[in-house]
């Protein structure tokens, strides 16, 4: 694991944060620090506030309480350094657009208003297509790509923003096992290239061995920057699916019992 300078600015710093809609608090007392080069997997049940957490980090939802800083700035400003990969069932899957044009959206921003895309933009777009191994699909209509390919195009779009941090919301949702493995392989490469990753999923099966640290989110967050899910996390009632932790993974994320260790 890449050592991090102790005084490096955290990419995301969340303190005592509560957030929700109307009067319903979806997130309570969240504390989370995302350090550079980390690859964090957060698991939790649907309705546990995973997407809400992302909305807060992206400045799309104001917290009720607590503070949030992205790259030491307000989220509305700091989010330009974030590459966002939304859950893709969210899209109109029939939208008429070519894969390359989706990736190009990662280049958008206030500075690009009134200006056409530049040769530099095109270079970055091609590079991102290459990074997700879909150079040959650039001209393909999005709706003719498979679920896994489409997800990789959304990852390329996020990379086109040249982000410090990648946020992925259920990246392997509605993707088959093989495509899912490819996506994790890809995220691993991207992480090695120096991009920090924070991903959330309801399915522990997808939290593969590439994740550096792991946490549980079910309205409150249980995350200690560790690689394993500790027993007290489960005992604290975070709804982590224990049988999956024990059997469904290529390596052990459940802490060994005292007597074994």
């Amino acid at each position: 694991m890449t050592p991090t300078a102790p005084n490096a600015t955290p990419l995301v710093e969340i303190k005592d944060l509560s957030a929700g809609y109307n009067n319903e608090m979806v997130l309570r007392d969240i504390n989370l620090t995302v350090e550079p080069d980390n690859f964090i997997g957060l698991i939790g049940p649907n309705g546990g506030g995973k997407t809400t957490l992302f909305k807060v980090i992206l400045g799309l939802l104001q917290p009720h309480k607590g503070t949030i800083k992205v790259m030491g700035m307000a989220p509305e400003k700091g989010r330009q350094h974030i590459g966002y990969v939304p859950q893709f069932t969210y899209y109109d899957s029939d939208f008429p657009i070519r894969a390359r044009d989706v990736v190009r959206m990662g280049r958008l921003g206030p500075k690009h208003l009134f200006k056409p895309y530049t040769a530099e933009d095109d270079r970055v777009v091609e590079e991102c297509l290459e990074r997700v191994h879909l150079t040959d699909k650039g001209n393909a209509p999005l709706r003719e790509l498979s679920g896994g390919q489409r997800q990789r195009i959304y990852i390329a779009r996020a990379l086109a923003s040249e982000p410090e941090l990648l946020l992925l919301d259920e990246p392997t949702n509605s993707v088959d096992v093989e495509a899912s493995a490819q996506i994790y392989e890809l995220l691993h490469e991207i992480n090695l290239q120096g991009v920090t990753i924070l991903l959330i999923s309801h399915d522990l099966n997808v939290i593969s061995s590439y994740v550096k640290t792991i946490g549980c989110l079910n309205r409150t967050l249980h995350y200690h920057g560790e690689k394993e899910i500790t027993e007290d996390m489960i005992q604290a009632g975070y709804n982590c699916p224990v049988e999956l932790i024990a059997h469904g993974l290529p390596h052990r994320v459940l802490a060994k019992h005292e007597e074994q260790g």
Partner: peptide, 23 residues
């Protein structure tokens, strides 16, 4: 013509466009 790429991006995925600080 002036806002073509922004109109396209907001029609396709408005939340993403917002995270890019597109108005």
């Amino acid at each position: 013509i002036l806002f073509f790429k922004e109109f396209q991006a907001t029609a396709f995925d408005e939340a993403f466009a917002r995270t890019r600080n597109v108005p």
